[in-house]
Design a protein around this nucleic acid. Structure first.
Lengths: 230, 230
DNA sequence: TTCACTTATATTGTATACAATATTATGTAC
DNA sequence: GTACATAATATTGTATACAATATAAGTGAA
């Protein structure tokens, strides 16, 4: 049997396609997510679409208004500040745990994720780079071995991507590679103080790169999934 | 129009009844949650039952195994430790924010919640006391004004209730009243250092009150909602 | 009895049908 | 043309029907 052949899981697939669409910036914050359109795009019934939307809502990536429908979340500047503060609090604890528990294999995997992120940057694909940057942070939480932190960060990192999409129009996170690399080096050495310092600066840079005075553009649904048209 | 007459919201009602059933210890950890039984108990279709179960799953209060069904979560000792550590990290930040932002009305509401918890203790209703204790902690996060913290703590506090149900058979949290009161006093005075110290001790006492060597009993579904039989 | 195997039942997974609500379009008065 | 009311449409909310899977019951052989 093939190890690479994942069994297809319709609910997860619908969820993941939507999630990727949002995180890859094909679906801009504020975009209306029409249920029947999504059924046509993904070839599943509204039941599974609604399941995926509810899950995304509980991850705070989608907002559902009763009888009005689902929309890609669009964090206000005030909420964005709360999100970045929450990340600061949790990720400082995460990096501390990661310093204590990180194994060689973990370091190698994290390094690989940094490389992937960098290759996306090299190709000018900033949307993919942003997504992989988030995956690096999440993997760090997994290495830290605290399930609630992983769970909370999954949502917070996704929301941060939305925030960057909305407010960071300059390419301010191009410096991320070095920051992730230095962070990983501190984790590898088990230097908790240095790791926390670097993480604090790193998250600070994300906030500094954002301009909370302008509002975002909203894309439409069919265009975002044009590659699925068969 | 009556202010106290909340418009009925079937999905929320089903969710809340299940949530209360679990948090009030009528549904013990590990209990199988049969969907058709729940439809009969709550008089809604499986659609809404499944919605409620999915939401509870994402709050980590219910586990859903594919094709096997939903069960009240039963955190292992290892996970319990992770949950309490996560609470420690987040609630120390929460109490710090609360010290900065707490208004007079907030103090009064928090005091009221302490009184409600105490009255439940006085009546020997420890299940209600436990639930109200959790509500106090959650309200503190609301006062702190950080939505991600509120969101994360909602699940963590519920999970802590499950942990106490499973592992804390002594009445170790009877001391909670004084601890909550002292905590509120520090918040009222805006004494961040004192607030964090008290919170750390409070959460430490929860962990100390638990014996992670014995396993819990599992109740059945009909008995837990016997009061609904019409 | 006990184990394996087959069949029947129960339970969950998904799609569809219908109901309720919101949105848009149309028409009419001013 | 604007504003308002009304009708037509579109969209979401909920219940039910059917399919897929798992669990339980039954049957026979060792």
């Amino acid at each position: 049997m093939s190890l690479s052949l994942a069994k297809q899981d319709a609910p997860m697939d619908a969820y993941r396609q939507l999630f990727d669409g949002i995180l890859s910036q094909r679906l801009a914050p504020g975009t209306k997510l029409n249920e029947v359109e999504l059924t046509l795009l993904f070839n599943v019934s509204r039941t599974l679409i609604r399941q995926a939307l509810q899950r995304l809502q509980l991850e705070q990536v989608v907002e559902i208004h009763k009888n009005r429908g689902a929309f890609v979340a669009a964090p206000t500047p005030d909420l964005a500040e709360q999100i970045l503060l929450a990340r600061h609090t949790i990720e400082l604890a995460v990096v501390r745990l990661a310093c204590q528990r990180c194994k060689l294999a973990d370091v190698q995997q994290l390094q690989h994720m940094i490389d992937l992120e960098q290759s996306a940057i090299d190709q000018g694909d900033m949307a993919t780079a942003l997504r992989r940057s988030g995956e690096f942070h999440l993997q760090l939480a997994i290495v830290a071995g605290n399930q609630p932190f992983v769970h909370a960060l999954r949502g917070l990192i996704s929301q941060t991507s939305l925030i960057i999409t909305m407010y960071n129009h300059g390419g301010g996170n191009a410096c991320a590679r070095d920051e992730h690399s230095h962070l990983l080096e501190a984790v590898r050495l088990g230097d908790e103080a240095q790791g926390q310092t670097l993480m604090a600066h790193h998250l600070g840079h994300i906030a500094e790169g954002c301009d909370f005075t302008q509002s975002p553009q909203v894309a439409n649904l069919k265009g975002a999934f044009a590659h699925l048209s068969s």
